[in-house]
């Protein structure tokens, strides 16, 4: 037993953001292992400059954003290659955004519709000023050369 036991102290300080009430400011960051799991083939496809959707053979539904099971019948879908030309279903230009994307603003988001697909695909549109974008305008997929295995490996430009 040691009645004089002392907690070793360090020289590190604390960032006090406010004193009344006391508010601390600290950084919070983590490494995370995110698995694309059953969606993985889509991201592998982007690296091969392919845009993959899902097709339900029972319902004959084609999903432009992939899902491995059909939302109508629950059956397994199979992978299908989508056309790389589509049309703008709707659009916006973001002048602000989540912190992670602030440095990329302004950027234009579009939902793309494809012939033969019942649902849409969210992507970015490059090469058009905000006031040049129109619903129905034809757009063409492009792929980054240095794949990051992110949904942004594909983007669209005016066709």
């Amino acid at each position: 037993m040691n009645k004089n036991a002392k907690l070793p102290e360090t020289e590190e300080g604390t960032v006090l953001f406010n004193v009344d009430p006391i508010m601390l400011k600290y950084h919070y960051e983590i490494d995370y292992l995110h698995s694309y799991a059953q969606d993985s083939p889509f991201f592998a496809g982007l690296a091969q400059k392919k845009l993959l959707g899902s097709h339900c053979p029972a319902c004959e539904t084609t999903y432009a954003t992939p899902r491995s099971h059909c939302m109508d019948c629950g059956g397994a879908t199979h992978w299908t290659e989508l056309p790389q030309c589509g049309r703008v279903h709707t659009f916006t230009t973001c002048h602000f955004g989540g912190e992670a994307f602030l440095k990329e603003t302004p950027f234009t988001l579009i939902l793309v519709e494809f012939d033969g697909a019942e649902t849409l695909f969210l992507s970015r549109l490059l090469g058009a000023d905000p006031d040049e974008v129109r619903i129905g305008m034809e757009v063409q997929a492009r792929f980054v050369r240095n794949s990051k295995f992110l949904a942004t490996d594909v983007y669209f430009v005016p066709a």
């Binding site: 659009f91 973001c94 955004g97 912190e99 992670a100 994307f101 970015r124 949904a151 942004t152």
Partner: peptide, 29 residues
């Protein structure tokens, strides 16, 4: 803007969030 990022995590983190996840952008579309 960090708050907007947290809120955007309530969108699909495979297909929606990484494209520029921002709820005001979704509602604008």
């Amino acid at each position: 803007w960090k708050g907007n990022e947290f809120i955007a995590l309530a969108s699909d983190t495979n297909f929606d969030y990484p494209v520029g996840g921002f709820y005001t952008g979704y509602y604008a579309m």
